[in-house]
Design a protein around this nucleic acid. Structure first.
Length: 430
DNA sequence: TCTGGGGTCCTAGGACCC
DNA sequence: TCTGGGGTCCTAGGACCC
């Protein structure tokens, strides 16, 4: 029998902030999106206050003051590093693991069925907590979609102590009956609304829908979901991270951009980040799309535009990609607007080894390859951003804000956590 | 003053070809 | 008055995820 576990970190970003700062334990915490704009993560205390995810922070200033909520900018260096540690720990417990997102992983438990899976789950929770400081919950079931539901219930019910095994049929129906259709993995806001108009209100209602009808109204994706709810595995484990077909880097600006020069700097910077990602997966991009937009939430003249530049020869070389992107920027930039956000999307991505060459291509590709290797090596050894293109600008006044970021405790020498010895401390051993 | 970022997949419809 | 049929490819838009 197919058995899969979904391990999900509890309030991951908020939990990360607590790992190196015990004073934050039991204190309400929110973590903000880029530019310190919206709430993207909440501790349990904040969820209890009813603050919705995605809430713009300026709309909850009063609540923050009243309940003394601690507010943090996103600290991706910290979260990424702790995520890696959690995943490494999980890999000890199953030969097959799919890292689904920064805070979730599916473990294949096939062949484990004779064990007491609930006890095994508790052992995983305890080990991850001990080794990384991060609390996790685990849902176990025959399919990924059911494991998601099990996980959600495990988080909600204190009785489960963080682990719920739904592989027993008797429990499955009960679990589906208490799960709102909108809380099913794969059913978003639009589908949930539509399904409710059809009298489909719970996961159990959805599981009992006729397959032909589901396929017609929710496409084959919805059909897979329904089958999964009935215990038929229809979404397989992805053991290796898939090569990206599209790579995007976009950011809101810390303050409005009004000049072409600044817009070019910003785009050059984003292209540089995107090109690093591209090289990490050994790919080359065949097209570059750039876009820019004003702030749709503000009064004043609005402008949104984008342009795609097809490359004669696909490349992973930063300076070449920057030059195409700058051409795009020049073609769509207009003065007289306060730009809020811009970005770059690489498309027509193919493996570097399969790049179609051009008979009349005169570029020194071997030379650029060596340059890229050198830059990537320096960045890896000496720190990101140490070497960069002049086109990226120096002061970068438009940069995204992270004004409330905690120290990068685990990935930056200057910001390591400091432990002060206290005389007479009896908690120390040896 | 202040409203995130980065992805995937599927479908419908148009263009184009024979 | 009359206007085939079937296939492929591409793109835009819509849905979803964290």
């Amino acid at each position: 029998m197919n058995i899969v576990a979904l391990v999900d970190c509890n309030n991951f970003y908020a939990s990360c902030e607590r790992v190196f700062n015990p004073a934050l334990r039991d204190v309400p915490i929110v973590v903000l999106s880029n530019n310190d704009g919206c709430v993207v993560a909440r501790s349990a205390e904040v969820k209890a206050l009813g603050i919705a995810p995605g809430k713009p922070v300026y709309q909850i200033e009063d609540l923050i003051r009243k309940h003394n909520i601690r507010v943090f900018s996103s600290n991706y260096a910290l979260y990424g590093d702790l995520s890696r540690r959690v995943m490494q720990t999980l890999a000890e417990f199953s030969p097959e693991i799919e890292i689904y997102s920064i805070d979730e992983a599916f473990l294949d438990f096939q062949g484990f069925s004779r064990r007491n899976l609930t006890a095994y789950g508790h052992e995983i929770c305890a080990t991850v907590k001990r080794w990384t400081g991060i609390p996790v919950s685990i849902g176990i079931a025959e399919t990924k979609t059911l494991a998601k539901i099990a996980n959600r219930l495990a988080k909600r019910s204190p009785k489960t102590k963080g682990v719920l095994d739904l592989s027993d049929l008797r429990w499955r129906e009960k679990a589906l009956a208490v799960t709102d259709v909108g809380d099913v993995w794969g059913i978003g806001g639009r589908y949930a609304k539509f399904l409710r108009t059809q009298g489909v209100n719970t996961a159990l209602d959805l599981a009992r829908c006729e397959e032909g009808w589901v396929k017609k109204r929710l496409s084959v994706v919805g059909l897979r979901t329904v089958r999964e709810l009935n215990g038929i595995p229809s979404i397989s484990m992805e053991l290796a991270p898939p090569v990206k077909k599209q790579l995007c880097v976009s950011r809101s600006f810390g303050r409005p951009v009004t000049t072409l020069a600044e817009m070019e700097e910003a785009l050059a910077t984003y292209v540089s980040r995107a090109a690093e990602k591209l090289r990490r997966q050994n790919s080359a991009a065949g097209s570059v799309m750039v876009f820019m937009m004003t702030n749709r939430f503000r009064e004043g003249p609005q402008y949104v535009n984008s342009t795609v530049i097809g490359l004669p020869v696909a490349t992973d070389c930063t300076q070449e990609l920057i030059s195409y992107a700058i051409k795009g920027v020049k073609s769509i930039f207009r003065t007289g607007f306060h730009f809020k956000k811009a970005g770059v999307v690489f498309g027509d991505i193919c493996p570097v080894s399969e790049v179609q060459m051009d008979l009349f291509d005169m570029k020194d590709r071997e030379g650029s390859r060596r340059l890229m290797d050198a830059i990537d090596t320096i960045s890896a050894r000496m720190g990101k951003g140490l070497v960069r293109y002049a086109a990226e600008g120096f002061k970068q006044p438009w940069r995204t804000k992270f004004e409330k970021r905690s120290p990068r405790y685990s990935s930056c020498w200057e910001e390591l956590a400091v432990v002060e010895a206290v005389a007479g401390c009896d908690g120390c051993e040896g």
